[in-house]
Amino acid sequence: MESTFMRAVRDRTDAAIASGDLQPIQADQVVLQDRGLSFIVRWVAALAAKDAARNPVGVATTLPGGPRDPSFNPFLNPDPALLVGPVGDHHVAILNKFPVCLHHLVLARRVFAEQCSPLEQVDFQALSAVLSVEGGLGFYNGGAAAGASQRHKHVQWIPASDQNASLRALGAGMPADLPQGAIARHPALPLAHCFARVAAGLGEDVQASARSMLTAFNQACIALGLRPDADGLLPPCNLLAGDGWMLVLPRSQEHFQGVSLNALSFGGTIYVRDPAQIDAIRAAGPLQALASVGVPA
């Protein structure tokens, strides 16, 4: 039976597509194999439109972690056509204007905070509120080098689908008896990262799940040396959570040969702006492309 939340997401999506505020998703894809792992490389036309919106003609500079126009903040007063509604006391759910899949959501703070500031209990509560009812994957792009395009603090969510990123494939390669809260490395990932077993997914208690994810995130940050600077900002990093797992990894840069790689790339789905970029991923191999934007192990 469909949840009240998912019904609201579907209704808002249908209305936004009908009004033209959200474009139907057009995508082509190929599947690449690398060290026993499958990667979907998808060309999503909407992402080229996102680049155009971030890079208006005649504007010469980009702010770290945010759009070129520092006064532009689509999350502080969300477009009513894209607004789904509140998620807890501190976040609102908004349809991503440039979605990579159907029902791609932004869970944005109601009050501005820097995207690179450490994730807190309330952020994981918002993620858990959705994951516990809908499953799917929660993720975080912490800073421009990690794929973030906005400075206003937010996490994101995509529904479970065979075509969408997830931690299922990587999780299958982790020790089955890894206790909750413990951290470990995946043997196939050639870059610094931490995997942790967490209470994140369908049927989990929201508060307990949020505490589990916050604890794992903090432990991963310590293990990876992700410490806030004098302004309280973390180095760029990505986080993915779902299906009982969390993956945290530091980032060194956003692009591999012009391809922007964000958290979803590490969940097995790489999104490109141009069909020709698929060839760059194929030539290098997905794991080498991911290693090039991470930090050496």
Rank of each mutant, 00 (worst) to 15 (best):
E120Y: 10
V272A: 04
L95H: 09
D274K: 13
A291P: 00
A144V: 13
Q29N: 13
L224I: 11
P250A: 03
R10V: 12
F5Q: 05
N96P: 06
H193L: 13
P228D: 10
E254P: 00
V59D: 11
G65Q: 12
P86G: 15
D274V: 09
G20H: 04
L264Q: 07
A49I: 04
S161I: 12
V293Y: 00
A48N: 07
G65R: 07
P179A: 10
G294T: 10
N73F: 09
F72M: 11
L107Q: 02
C194W: 05
L247G: 09
V248E: 04
G232M: 03
F217S: 10
P235E: 01
S260D: 00
D14I: 02
G232A: 02
K153V: 09
L226T: 07
R109P: 08
P56Q: 09
A291I: 06
V31G: 06
A81T: 05
F5M: 13
P296R: 09
L131Y: 01
G143A: 05
Q207G: 09
E134S: 10
A8S: 15
L76R: 15
R282W: 04
Q277E: 11
K97M: 06
A60F: 06
A15P: 03
D79F: 05
D11F: 03
G242K: 01
A126Y: 03
F256Q: 01
Q257Y: 03
S71T: 15
G267D: 08
G267L: 04
R42M: 11
L47V: 05
L95C: 04
A263Y: 10
Q288D: 14
Q288F: 02
K50E: 15
R42W: 10
R197V: 03
L32C: 01
R227K: 12
L170F: 12
A48F: 04
C221W: 14
G173F: 04
L63T: 11
P118E: 07
C101L: 01
D123S: 08
I222D: 15
T269L: 08
N164K: 09
N262E: 11
G142E: 06
R273E: 08
W157I: 00
K153T: 07
G258H: 01
I278Q: 15
Q33K: 13
F39H: 01
G181V: 09
P296F: 02
Q33T: 14
R110Q: 11
F139L: 03
N77Y: 11
A192K: 04
H103L: 07
A192Q: 12
L107E: 03
A176M: 02
G203N: 01
D34P: 08
L247K: 08
V111C: 06
A49T: 12
G66L: 02
H103V: 03
G201D: 01
S265N: 07
G267R: 05
N164A: 14
G36Y: 00
F5K: 08
